[in-house]
Design a binder for these strands. Structure first.
Length: 549
RNA sequence: GCGCCAGUAGCUCAGCUGGAUAGAGCAAAGCACUUCUAAUGCUUAGGUCGGGGGUUCGAAUCCCUCCUGGCGUACCA
């Protein structure tokens, strides 16, 4: 990374005892940032401002001394080093450095912006919608954000496992089975009512139809609800997976609650473990866990009066299992409506002496669908939601995925359908893909120069707009790191829009394929580098980069 | 009541581990196609960063407090 490279150079200069009198300063505090105002150079640092007090020096004077030292040190690196008002040191990087770093972009290709394996293992769980219906809008943002975070983490050097927790056990599943059975009976003209709390959506009619085509109706009459539950789960998981694949989301692991928690001794083992550290007590005929002693505000029931374990107990067992599987970081992407579970789950992991710092959460705020200025997130037919399938029948995957990651997950998000239709000015993904397509179009027209990457003179790229594009390209790895550390794919989305803007502006002003072959070659190299960044960046967001539009 | 998130331009939102004159897109007004894709570009206008205190060289950013909106506060999952 260019920034690291320069920071290192500065650190080396400052800590050189023979030349520098600042070698006692804590150089780990040296941070370069990119100033808003281009007059302040390519990078700047507040290092002198931070350290002035400790040295009992005037910050401006300190900055001056440091800058003089650096300016003399490496004339190849800096075009100039200046000092501004309170004590900022501003660096203008020489064009040669930019050209040198640009040359590496195409060598790295699809790995440009990525980081080598760091040996850390991350488990990231997301979507995990109950298999009692199709995926709907509420799951869409979770899916898009979760998958993009997983891709970004992987790209930045982590070994990532994505996991979908299948809630295929318990009351809801019984109701699902009974509801399906009821639908089958209705098809057979046998009077049957869906349970009060059951699943009344019409999709179960389709499942019933399918079931009747596969199994003789006489045989079905004698089946209990479990048979129907199993059939419905299998069907619905398959449908969910289909929708996810349409979004280009593939899970590494599907974790069945029934198989892994209830049909094993995991639950009893976990319970015994809690008991072994005196973490359980009986009250009101129920069993409670002492989470209040481990960082939560309350204790919680883990076994109900009827002897069944609570959902929370199952979740403790599941997360304990996650810890046992040896991950360095366990990430849950949750809807914001589950935020209250965080503190009790963390407290439980503390109690089990798992390192709860390894357990992290990304909370996703709600999305509202807006159509004709009104909230249409829920359809008029009560109980049915806008499904992902419905969304994808009207909007393509690229648009949907990009929109879902283009805002901070902390923000509520209004998705205005009318503003996102094809050709709309309010459709940012087209803007980015169009940039990428324009580049392709030029690259395809290059019959004259017959551009080859090896023989190109990048020092011909001297226009301001060219240098600005190079700077932005070289900033890509920093963006990846930032998006990865903060698990915020929207930072990448914003970056790609900014990069597109730089390109479009450059494109309108500058002819790429000109008579001077050398110059064309250098510009084609720049464009190909841009294309690399677009492709790499969009891929991380699960968005394609079409060859033409 | 308590907890989490949000409140920044007319609208939708970035910026929040403190930095220099607060940004982008859309909408508004005006301009630019005999050119490698005008799904574009270039101008202009638009702000008491919810209110009030505090911390310091410096606050949209940190602390306190109040107001508004969303979500949550089960022996449901």
């Amino acid at each position: 990374m260019l920034k690291d490279f320069i920071e290192d150079k500065i650190r080396i200069s400052l800590s050189d005892k023979s030349k520098s009198k600042f070698f006692e300063l804590d150089i780990s505090k040296l941070v370069l940032s990119i100033p808003n105002n281009p007059d302040h150079g390519d990078f700047s640092t507040n290092f002198a401002l931070i350290n002035a007090k400790a040295l009992k020096l005037n910050p401006f004077e300190l900055a001056r001394e440091i800058s003089t030292l650096l300016d003399n040190e490496d004339s190849d690196l800096f075009e100039r080093v200046t000092v501004e008002k309170p004590g900022f040191i501003n660096f203008k990087i020489s064009k040669k450095i930019y050209h040198d770093f640009l040359a590496e972009v195409l060598i790295k290709g699809e790995n440009f912006g990525s980081f080598p394996l760091n040996g850390k293992k991350i488990l990231i769980e997301f979507v995990s919608a109950n298999p009692t219906g199709l995926l709907h809008l509420g799951h869409l943002r979770n899916a898009a954000v979760g998958d993009s975070i997983a891709r970004i983490l992987k790209f930045s050097g982590y070994s990532v496992t994505t996991e979908y927790y299948i809630n295929d056990y318990g009351n809801q599943i019984r109701l699902l089975g009974e509801s399906l059975k009821s639908r089958v009976m209705q098809k057979l003209k046998i009077e049957s009512k869906i349970p009060e709390e059951g699943y009344k959506g019409e999709y179960l009619l389709d499942v019933a139809e399918l079931l009747l085509s596969e199994v003789k109706s006489d045989d079905l009459l004698s089946k209990d609800y479990e048979f129907f539950s199993n059939y419905a789960i299998k069907y619905l998981i398959n449908e969910i997976d289909k929708d996810l694949k349409d979004l280009d989301i593939n899970f590494d692991s599907w974790y069945s609650e029934r198989d892994r928690i209830h049909n094993t001794d995991l639950l009893s083992k976990t319970r015994n473990l809690i008991k072994s550290v005196q973490g359980l007590y009986e009250k009101d005929d129920a069993q409670w866990i002492k989470t209040s002693e481990y960082g939560d505000n309350d204790d919680w029931v883990v076994k109900k009066r009827d002897d069944a374990s609570t959902y929370f107990m199952n979740d403790i067992a599941y997360h304990h299992d996650k810890f046992q599987r040896g991950f360095d970081n366990i990430v849950n992407i949750w809807g914001a409506d589950h935020h209250s579970h965080i503190s009790r789950l963390k407290a439980s992991m503390n109690l089990l002496s798992n390192d709860s710092h390894k357990l992290n959460f990304v909370l996703i705020q709600f999305v509202r669908l807006i159509k004709d200025g009104r909230d249409v997130s829920m359809s008029k037919r009560s109980g049915t939601y806008t499904t992902i399938r419905d969304m994808l029948s009207e909007f393509n995957k690229d648009l949907v995925r990009f929109m879902m990651v283009s805002r901070s997950s902390d923000s509520h998000f209004d998705f205005d359908l009318d503003k996102c239709r094809e050709g709309s000015d309010d459709n940012p993904i087209f803007y980015i893909q169009y940039a990428s397509a324009r580049i392709n179009s030029i690259l395809n027209k290059d019959e004259v120069v017959k551009f080859t990457e090896s023989q190109v003179d990048l020092s011909l790229l001297i226009e301001d707009k060219e240098i600005n594009i190079i700077k932005k390209i070289l900033n890509f790895p920093d963006i990846i790191l930032d998006a990865s550390n903060s698990m915020s794919p929207h930072k990448l989305a914003f970056y790609l829009q900014e990069l597109s803007a730089l390109f479009h502006s450059y494109y309108r002003e500058t002819k790429i394929l000109v008579d001077e072959r050398e110059l064309s070659g250098a510009r084609l190299f720049l464009l190909k580098s841009l294309k690399t960044v677009f492709t790499n960046g969009l891929t991380l967001l699960g968005v394609s980069s079409p060859e033409r539009m």
